[in-house]
Amino acid sequence: MAKVDIKMPDDFLIKVSKLADQTDVIIPKVLDAGGEVVLEKVKSNLRSVIGRDTKYPSESTGELLSSLGVTPAKQDRDGNFNVKVGFAEPRSDGGSNAKIANIIEYGKHGQPAKPFLKPAKSASKKACIEAMAAKLDEEIKNL
């Protein structure tokens, strides 16, 4: 599965730690807000690279784009909350969306790379942090 890892800034973590009892409720909402920002950028980038600069007409069915989504925030065994932006599996033909995304991202023999994940990570980092900070402020005001 394609994976994007974004680290939270220290000042954000300090704010979160002050919320004590409500952190298990607020953190998933904050991460979902950030995940949606990244998801939209990945979708936008994927739309722009599918079928671009090909020797033959595109055979895209739109299934890869429609399978892109964000998971609900879940806590791992270390106690950290995570959301993942990735592709639902399997495809209707039994193939793997992650495999197709990997081929698009990195290319293969005879097919040049058309990166869409890595640029989305870089381009959406600031907007993601801003969206999470805004959501956190909103949740703090609601306490």
Rank of each mutant, 00 (worst) to 15 (best):
K125L: 09
S122R: 12
A73I: 12
K84Y: 08
P57C: 07
K43Y: 00
P115Y: 03
K3G: 04
S58T: 12
P57A: 12
S17L: 15
E89K: 04
I26G: 05
D10M: 10
I50Y: 02
P112L: 08
C128E: 03
T54H: 06
E59L: 13
V30W: 00
R91L: 07
A120L: 00
I14C: 11
G95H: 02
S122H: 07
K121E: 13
G79N: 06
S17I: 15
D53S: 11
G62C: 06
E89D: 02
A73P: 06
D10V: 13
Q111E: 06
A20Q: 14
S92E: 14
E40A: 14
E105I: 01
D93Q: 07
G107C: 04
R91D: 04
A123W: 00
A20K: 15
A73V: 12
K43N: 04
P72D: 14
R47H: 07
S48H: 14
D76E: 06
K18M: 15
A113D: 05
K99R: 08
I100S: 03
R77K: 07
I14R: 14
P90S: 04
A2I: 11
R52K: 10
G107T: 07
I27M: 15
V4K: 01
D21F: 15
V49Y: 03
E59Q: 14
N102S: 13
N97Y: 00
S67R: 08
L19H: 07
S67V: 05
L13C: 13
E40K: 15
K7A: 14
T23C: 11
A123Y: 00
K7Y: 09
V49K: 03
G86R: 02
A120M: 00
K29L: 14
K135C: 05
L143S: 06
D32M: 13
I103H: 01
I104E: 00
K7G: 06
L19W: 06
G86T: 07
I50F: 01
L39F: 12
E130P: 04
S58C: 09
K18D: 14
S124H: 04
L136M: 08
I14Q: 14
V30F: 01
D10R: 07
P28A: 10
M132F: 12
K74M: 13
T71M: 10
P57W: 03
V30N: 01
D76Y: 02
A88F: 03
P72H: 12
A123N: 02
I100N: 02
G110T: 08
L46E: 02
Y56D: 09
D21N: 15
P72N: 14
G62P: 02
F87V: 05
P57N: 12
K29M: 14
R91N: 05
A131W: 08
I100W: 01
I104S: 02
V30R: 00
N82V: 04
